[in-house]
Design a binder for these strands. Structure first.
Lengths: 248, 248
DNA sequence: AACAGAATTTGACCCAGATCAAGCCTTTTC
DNA sequence: GAAAAGGCTTGATCTGGGTCAAATTCTGTT
């Protein structure tokens, strides 16, 4: 992928119709030009760990392409995914910080990075960036809290249905298609990763996927390719009161 | 409580030794003076709902005294607490927003509020505020993610131990005492509230409290007053890899 | 096309925590 | 000071999801 085509748009722009995710021609602001000057790129292969928990992080970054996961681990190996990084999502934070979690590439990924020092200086000069970052962080916090409800109170079936509906919604927004009744998409996660995200075992994930298939809520072509014949039915299974549901 | 004694310090100051929570004489910055001009107070009685999920929020606020909880609910009544608001914690966000959760007073509380419009204008004038708010929000996000690990992967006993150690730590910082081996504090939550926070039932909470008492990890005077004879032992039971652990 | 190796599904069984149901303190109320 | 009402504890039983183990796809690879 040609680096120069791509901007870390999410940082500079909060008003795009395709919020948070793609390149938008309207975003040719001064801030963006500023950001251009200090950015650099790093790429990682699928399976590589981008950041280890406890690392001193000297940069902040935004995902350009590919998928990465944020995970936390107990010393006996139990792990919980606490976030999913899709293109245009942001990792890291200004100020001194040690990473509290691992960041691992699920697919090959390309990240647009900024060394912390110049990034912070730039935040002081252009207050819009700090406000935009605040917006994004608040959205993530809402998503995290939504996920707490899922982890604490939903059944396995509801958890799976929630995850599927969130992936479907996010997939639709990447393809810039409007959410339809019937949708088709690829799961970006293995059964094990789904389990780590949902606080389940991979066997339970597999069983519930089979159950949803048996009950006609989803159709499966292969293991990763999912078709949802009736989106409303899926949302009902997810047990959400409203359409709610962000994704980190 | 006399209103004029109290400042929403957490907003203006990130460097206090007693970070996030008490009044600090060093915080007499211009920002604080600005904030003083636009603040007003509201108080609520224990049990009152401060904000309903779905409400249009036209203010942001910081807790001055008392305790409130953030909860999310599924339509069949299952509820999950997603945050605890202790003195100096912040609720609400700039920009248009509907509350995604209920905020309920656990004790009588006093809140220091700012109408959104003037608050946002002030954020534009004093970028330090936005950066401070970003700091605080990132801390909350880290805490939320830590809590996701707890909800998804910890056993009931570990969950209780984690909650107790967090309350102990936070209590120590309010009292400005340094964390000692032996600590004593009051639980600010009923068994039911603890259950909602931990994703358990109140019966399980009660049983595990009894078990920890039986095993000498804690001592109980009455129902709310807890003594931890050996803090390290408690942390061990909590299963955390490091001292970790923030509280929302 | 046959093989190797990983990812996934399915089955059998078990257990931590939920559910249902009494009883037991403390407060508060009259 | 008796009664009512919350909050809390404890017991008996049930069950959703975990654990362990064995097939069954899928992916490349030679």
């Amino acid at each position: 992928m040609a680096h120069d085509d791509v901007y870390p748009v999410s940082l500079a722009c909060g008003d795009c119709p395709i919020q948070h995710r793609a390149v938008c021609a309207r975003c040719d602001s001064d801030e963006l030009v500023e950001l251009e000057k200090i950015k650099y790129y790093r790429s990682f292969e699928a399976g590589q760990t981008v950041i280890w928990a406890g690392d001193q992080m000297d940069f902040v970054a935004s995902v350009v392409s590919g998928i990465a996961t944020l995970t936390q681990t107990l010393e006996d190996g139990r792990t919980q995914m606490v976030g999913l990084l899709l293109p245009s999502d942001f990792v890291g934070r200004p100020g001194r910080s040690r990473a509290a979690y691992n960041v691992t590439a699920t697919t090959d990924i390309l990240m647009c990075c900024f060394r912390k020092k110049p990034f912070e200086e730039m935040m002081d000069r252009t207050p819009h960036i700090a406000q935009r970052l605040l917006q994004m962080t608040l959205d993530e916090l809402d998503a995290a809290r939504e996920w707490m409800l899922l982890l604490g109170r939903k059944t396995a079936r509801e958890k799976i249905a929630s995850l599927l509906s969130i992936v479907a919604r996010r997939d639709a927004s990447i393809k810039m298609s409007t959410a339809a009744a019937r949708m088709t998409f690829d799961l970006p996660l293995t059964r094990e990763a789904m389990a780590d995200y949902l606080g389940l075992t991979l066997e339970t994930v597999s069983r519930q996927m089979s159950a949803l298939k048996r009950d006609g809520v989803i159709e499966l072509q292969g293991k990763r390719h999912v078709t949802v014949p009736d989106m409303d039915r899926l949302l009902l299974e997810a047990g959400d009161d409203c359409d709610g549901g962000f994704l980190v």
